[in-house]
Nucleic acid binder design. Structure first.
Lengths: 252, 252
DNA sequence: CGGTGTGAACGTCTTCACAGCT
DNA sequence: AGCTGTGAAGACGTTCACACCG
């Protein structure tokens, strides 16, 4: 079986999308990530009773430029009214459908240590269509307890439990040393999407999608920017409105 | 003061890099993120006593293709030996210097709830040049306790304490409703880099760099891929080795 | 010969600018 | 008149392929 490895902070590695490329509309990965952000703001606007938003307003609230926002929304369809803006509720609904959030995804959490506890308690999951449906650990003090009503099972039962409960997404929050073995079991259970918090590059078959969240990497990227400012900065010169290239000046 | 907002999952919004663009070497943001990954693997290789690695080997271990890896490394300088590979220790050292990791960064953590606790206990920080030097919360049960030897202060003292301890990076792990106020105080204290875990788009002055880690967004992106497979997938057709465009086929 | 370093080609994402609808 | 939707242009990042060096 061909293996594909995954790296980078929150990076995708590639995959499908050759089949039937012309038949269906195709959405850039970058757009998908932003749609999720628009969705949250639209939800807030709906709660506040707003009927419509202009691309300019929604762009300001989500921190993107309005042309990009309009192009992003054009991928989900034409839900705007020219001269007026977008209808909040229909647009919200349509983005949800586009992201596939109308079907709930059962999530498994592996590793119930510090981070795992935090993830288990994170309200943004269950409340937003991602009920944590299974939990696993190896620590005998943790296996058998209940968190949010979910029994923590032993890691050795990952395949059986995940398959039985129809888990579609796995979150790995184990130490790095255990991550690959846990990942292999998830793959055995048929899980095809994995969110990896462990600081290792997982090897998975081509059909499995891995996203990585690497806290140390995030800090290192910020450290780079701090260092850059130390030398290049201090001059107070504004980078000119709208300067948005991703490059950066080296410390030396 | 001009405000700039930040959105997206782990996204940068733009900024500097117009000044002296030709004078210093310029590193793409995407490369910076990967350098941090190479660094970790190089550390492991060094521990195992490896002297040299080829681009092919290091690429396999970090999950990127070898051409990209060589190009990335060319930004830090020529530390490879043709016909042999890269010397592990000198390369490791040089990447550290390039990322600015030779100078330790004092980190402040705001919000010591579930996630905050996990972040405080995360070994990858202190051990890797990012000592958590200050912690803040509003909960009277938490203010005053010590975690890893660090006293948790009240959020109202953010500016004073951060300025006094030379904090350069702030991590916001508060509920969304508190995040902007906390962020404003960090900015007042002179902090210019912020890692935001709260599900809000922070408004900051141009000089401040924000990175966002949004767990709900990560899951939504994966959900999108699950939904995509449900319709387009199931055909088992391999996407052809090396297919790596970021596009994706819509559920409908 | 083997593997790095890099110009050039390619593809993707972003921005611009305006036609066209309400 | 105002704002969306989108082709076209531009910037950026990735991949290719090979010259060059050890």
């Amino acid at each position: 079986m061909t293996l594909r490895s995954h790296a980078g902070s929150s990076a995708r590695a590639g995959g499908a999308s050759r089949t039937a490329a012309k038949l269906a509309r195709s959405i850039p990965e970058a757009t998908v990530a932003r749609l999720a952000v628009y969705l949250r703001i639209l939800g807030e606007l709906a709660e506040q009773g707003a009927d419509t938003v202009s691309s300019e307003e929604l762009a300001a609230a989500t921190g993107v430029n309005s042309a990009k926002l309009r192009k992003d929304l054009s991928y989900v369809g034409s839900y705007g009214i020219r001269g007026v803006g977008y209808e909040v509720v229909p647009l919200h609904h349509e983005i949800e459908r586009t992201l596939g959030l109308d079907q709930k995804q059962a999530v498994a959490l592996i590793g119930v240590g510090n981070l795992g506890h935090a993830l288990a308690g994170y309200g943004g999951f269950g409340g937003r269509g991602f009920p944590v449906t299974a939990m696993f650990d190896v620590d005998p003090d943790i296996v058998g307890i209940r968190i949010n009503g979910i029994l923590v099972d032993h890691v050795r039962d990952i395949s059986a439990v995940c398959a039985a409960r129809g888990v579609t997404i796995g979150m790995i929050a184990t130490p790095g040393s255990a991550a690959q073995a846990v990942c292999d079991q998830l793959v055995d259970a048929g899980v095809e999407c994995i969110l990896n918090f462990a600081p290792v590059v997982l090897q998975v078959p081509d059909r499995v999608e891995v996203r990585k969240v690497d806290l140390a990497v995030e800090l290192q990227i910020l450290a780079f920017h701090v260092a850059r400012r130390r030398v290049a900065g201090t001059d107070g010169s504004e980078p000119a409105k709208g300067a948005t290239n991703g490059s950066v000046v080296l410390p030396r």
